[in-house]
């Protein structure tokens, strides 16, 4: 496996941002009320991620270390603005369905996390492939969750009648409403707990959840960029920012 396919495999399977690393939970919960919305959100995040990985990797030697976070934020925010206007122009219905969650891609921890942990240390081509891999992994995750919620909650498959075509089928509407998102994610986390244990028993442990769902800021993989961590560690990040 060459290093480019390795990046893709890493993003989609080994360190899948939704199922394994549990990153970006706000959009995961918020926009997965249907498979189309999940797919749209995943693809727009992927576009931003690929472009931001490319730009940050190109500029990695120019950006001074002390101001790297603000610099990354400006790059990501500009890209998000571009994506937001493109979507409003060409996909108005999707843009309306996703609403405020499109500009909120800026604070998605996958993007800044990849910028900090991969793109700022590697060449542009590898970084693009890393972005494609991670973006695909996120898109697949969101689409699967969206599909589950849509099938149970509305009985449709990508907005086409599927289960709802069966006589006497009653959709469980709660699944496409807010509580359903929490419930589906709860079962997902529980399922991943089982898989994690099985893989650990086989001697091939999965990567630990890196995001806020692990609830363990001290050992969080994002701790270099996230300011949300225990007080002592938080101070160092602040002083780095103020330099």
């Amino acid at each position: 496996m060459n290093k480019y396919t390795e990046r893709l495999y890493n993003g989609v399977i080994k360190e899948n941002p939704t199922f394994v690393l549990m990153l970006g939970m706000c959009p995961t919960l918020a926009v997965t009320s249907s498979a189309i919305n999940g797919l749209g959100m995943g693809l727009s995040t992927m576009v931003v991620l690929i472009c931001s990985n490319l730009l940050i990797s190109l500029f990695r030697k120019v950006i001074p270390n002390g101001v790297r976070m603000p610099a990354y934020i400006v790059i990501v925010a500009s890209l998000v603005t571009v994506v937001q206007f493109l979507m409003a122009a060409y996909l108005p219905s999707l843009s309306k369905a996703l609403g405020v969650y499109i500009p909120l891609i800026v604070v998605n921890c996958i993007i800044l996390g990849r910028a900090e942990s991969y793109a700022s240390k590697n060449g542009p081509v590898e970084s693009i492939f890393d972005g494609i891999g991670m973006g695909l992994g996120f898109t697949i995750g969101l689409t699967i969750i969206g599909l589950i919620r849509e099938l149970l909650g509305a009985g449709t498959f990508f907005n086409m009648p599927f289960l709802s075509a069966i006589e006497g089928f009653t959709p469980i509407t709660i699944f496409i409403m807010a509580p359903g998102a929490f419930l589906v994610l709860a079962f997902l986390v529980a399922g991943m707990n089982i898989i994690r244990k099985k893989m650990a028993a086989k001697g091939k442990p999965l990567a630990e959840p890196a995001g806020c769902l692990s609830g363990d800021c001290a050992h969080c993989g994002q701790s270099a960029m996230c300011t949300g961590k225990s007080a002592a560690a938080g101070k160092t990040a602040d002083s780095a920012k103020q330099e």
């Binding site: 939970m25 706000c26 919960l29 918020a30 921890c109 806020c212 769902l213 949300g228």
Partner: peptide, 10 residues
């Protein structure tokens, strides 16, 4: 609205 899930869980 699912905003601020991270601190809510963490």
């Amino acid at each position: 609205q699912f905003l601020g899930i991270c601190p809510f869980l963490g």
